[in-house]
């Protein structure tokens, strides 16, 4: 089981290094700060919609800063290692290239997990604070308190972790063949935007007024691009008393894991043949 140990230590080392870089704390502070600030923007009583307003800040922060963190740290910790030839010293040890790449990915993914957990924690605290105040106001008027599902928020966090995992895996795949830092970052962000807009291709593929060629093209694209919108489940999970079915949640998680595995394999494939 030496290879599992190696992957563990590479991941752990990657995590330590990423956590010690100022970039992580900076994004975390920015995201958490933004969520907290949203509290001061809500002086008026909008009831439920006010909580949704706060939550939108939190959800947006997790996705926006999380994505930036996923792309930049992955390039920083994987591509830069190839470029600076740190990887050379590591691969001269009894370490396979696949183990190296997978360890790097896991390290970044763990960091993203910490990021999502902390962000969700801040969001939960802010929501609880405001929901308490709102419940008092509503109680005085004889209305029911606003509905917030904190368990749903935790599930939402796990789904965001999977989504950011896809983003990091995409960046790993891009970094494995990129020749410059800028290329790795830009192409990864473009891939992120395309994945975010995957539904546009899906619309084309199922559209009625489009030609057959476009339809086929869009259909292929739909299959080759992960659909990140699938993870936009915040509102349903946190504010909808009906929530989401366990099957739907399981499906989204499985979808995430399959895409992560596929992208990491693409990265391993390119990296195997790369001259460093």
């Amino acid at each position: 089981m030496f290879f599992l140990k190696k992957i563990f230590w590479i991941a752990r080392n990657t995590f330590t290094e990423a956590a010690r870089q100022k970039f992580f704390s900076f994004l975390l502070l920015l995201g958490a700060g933004l969520t907290a600030v949203s509290l001061s923007l809500t002086h008026f009583d909008f009831g439920d919609s006010e909580l949704k307003f706060i939550a939108d800040f939190g959800f947006g922060g997790i996705f926006l800063f999380g994505s930036v963190l996923a792309v930049v740290t992955t390039v920083q910790l994987f591509f830069t290692e190839i470029e600076n030839r740190t990887a050379l010293t590591m691969l001269a040890k009894p370490v396979r290239r696949g183990e190296f790449l997978f360890g790097k990915f896991l390290g970044v993914w763990c960091l993203l997990g910490v990021f999502v957990a902390l962000m969700c924690g801040v969001l939960a605290a802010v929501l609880a604070l405001r929901a308490g105040t709102l419940a008092e106001v509503a109680g005085a008027r004889g209305l029911p308190p606003p509905f917030v599902d904190f368990g749903g928020l935790a599930v939402f966090g796990v789904l965001q972790w999977a989504r950011l995992g896809i983003v990091a895996a995409m960046t790993v795949a891009v970094s494995s063949f990129a020749q410059t830092y800028l290329y790795a970052v830009v192409v990864s962000f473009v891939a992120l935007i395309i994945a975010q807009l995957q539904y546009v291709f899906a619309d084309f593929a199922s559209g009625e007024k489009v030609s057959f060629g476009v339809k086929a093209l869009a259909g292929t694209a739909t299959k080759l691009i992960p659909n990140l919108q699938l993870f936009n489940t915040g509102e349903a999970l946190v504010f909808d008393p009906a929530g989401l079915s366990a099957a739907a949640i399981g499906c989204a998680l499985g979808y995430g894991v399959i895409w992560i595995a596929a992208l990491v394999f693409v990265g391993m494939w390119f990296f195997r043949f790369r001259e460093i």
């Binding site: 600076n84 030839r85 740190t86 010293t89 001269a92 396979r96």
Partner: peptide, 21 residues
């Protein structure tokens, strides 16, 4: 063969290492 590398120690030229450790 990866396994044989546990018997080798290598110092690359102009080495660069994990700065945050």
């Amino acid at each position: 063969d990866v396994a044989v590398r546990s018997r080798i120690g290598f110092l690359p030229e102009a080495p660069y290492f994990y700065g945050y450790l």
